[in-house]
Design a protein around this nucleic acid. Structure first.
Lengths: 232, 232
DNA sequence: GACATTAGTGACGAAGTGTTACTAATTCGC
DNA sequence: GCGAATTAGTAACACTTCGTCACTAATGTC
């Protein structure tokens, strides 16, 4: 049995080098894309996630917002933590500890900051092992939370068609969804409301535009589901 | 400051004081309980979560295991990260950054380490604001993951009755479940298998003992559910 | 033996889900 | 102009899942 000092030896909190690493995601033409920044010459990889140290007194989400702005030129629409990492996988700045966050943003109009570029998630360049792990964790977390958090709506402009929305869900889950089922479930959820605008994309029938307008629903109160213990 | 000759100054990763804070949970008589340790005299609160700094080269889960052992006298059955915290809420060791983890353990036989004690989650003593936030986050995370991860089974001994299991789910979700529905869903999940032992608790019909023995199921592949956007 | 107590199951109606097949409104090619 | 192609949107059916009720089963207590 280990012994605790029975006395006021106030233990000192050790210091560690700490990085905040952000996976900025946005929908591209036909895939989800992550924003990477070019690394200074001399590093092992040419690209990395946007990252920085935590400034003193700064919260994690504040730092992630600042880091996103410095690479994207705009603040993200939503931030979520995806986990912390302190194992031996190498960080581009050799940080002892990384806090990983995922930032979501709809397609951005303005130009990116110099040195930043979008890469499809399925075609990322080489990243440091820790950054690679953070990206993988981010995609897992996004997939897990997509139906408990309005993630998909943060990847779209304020008004969107239901086909747009379904497309985002399909990107996030990387599988096809059935149109009728998707709309019926959406209807039942009271998450969107129709606007009186319609959009014509060229061919095909014009689509009605909707906006995200969640109404408080009475609690679901479902039983346990013993869902996907399938650790994918 | 580290410099690379002939090149732009490589930004230095700042140091921060870092703590690993563990919420150790175990089922007590009729509630979930968290393990707290007595703080050295002089602090603002008399109790805190078990915590420590990260030793150099140590992974977060390794640290959490070590910290749990030092308060519980045994390793936890399961660990999960619940989030990191760097806001202004006070930590008992004034750490800049906390990484919070939740540790699950079935009722432990041996004695606790001196200075450690179980408290029902619903009747915790005063904790530092950051520790309070970590506990709250831990209960939320546990509730969210209870049907995606075999959390409940880690709070039980290797063999258990289905009523035991249902009781754990009710503790974790803090609501009553219906017996028939619970068993039907469990049946469909192929997560447990019966042993040939039975347990008689005194009154009532004896119950068959089961063990956790998940069989790989074919993927569920359900549509999107637009579930609980009800941020509790 | 009557009763209380806990374990375990069958079955019914309601709600939810996957799918097919349809109608609607537009552009394109001719 | 007109049919084919294309995209949007919906009705309806079969089937599954879920909440609930009502029951049977096996033990201890009096």
């Amino acid at each position: 049995m280990r012994e605790r000092p029975s006395h006021p030896v106030k233990s000192v909190v050790r210091k560690a080098t700490l990085a905040v690493d952000v996976v900025v995601l946005s929908p591209q033409v036909d895939s989800l894309a992550a924003l990477l920044v070019r690394t200074p010459p001399g590093g092992r990889e040419r690209w990395s996630l946007p990252w920085d140290s935590l400034l003193s007194g700064e919260g994690l989400e504040d730092a992630a917002t600042r880091i996103t702005e410095s690479a994207l030129g705009a603040a993200p629409a939503l931030l979520e933590q995806v986990g912390s990492f302190a194992d031996t996988r190498r960080h581009p700045g050799d940080a002892d500890v990384s806090v990983g966050l995922v930032a979501l943003t709809p397609p951005v109009e303005g130009a990116l900051v110099a040195g930043a570029e979008w890469f499809a998630l399925s075609a990322l360049p080489a990243l440091s092992p820790r950054h690679r792990a953070i990206v993988d964790r981010a995609t897992t977390v996004v997939r897990q939370r997509v139906d408990q958090s309005p993630l998909a709506f943060r990847l779209l402009p304020p008004s969107f068609t239901l086909s747009d929305l379904q497309g985002i869900y399909e990107l996030l889950l990387s599988r096809r969804l059935h149109k009728a089922s998707f709309r019926r479930a959406l209807q039942a959820s009271y998450l969107v409301e129709p606007t009186d605008e319609w959009r014509s994309e060229g061919r095909g029938r014009p689509a009605q535009l909707f906006r995200y307008a969640p109404r408080r629903r009475r609690g679901a109160r479902r039983g346990v589901r013993f869902d996907l213990f399938t650790e994918g």
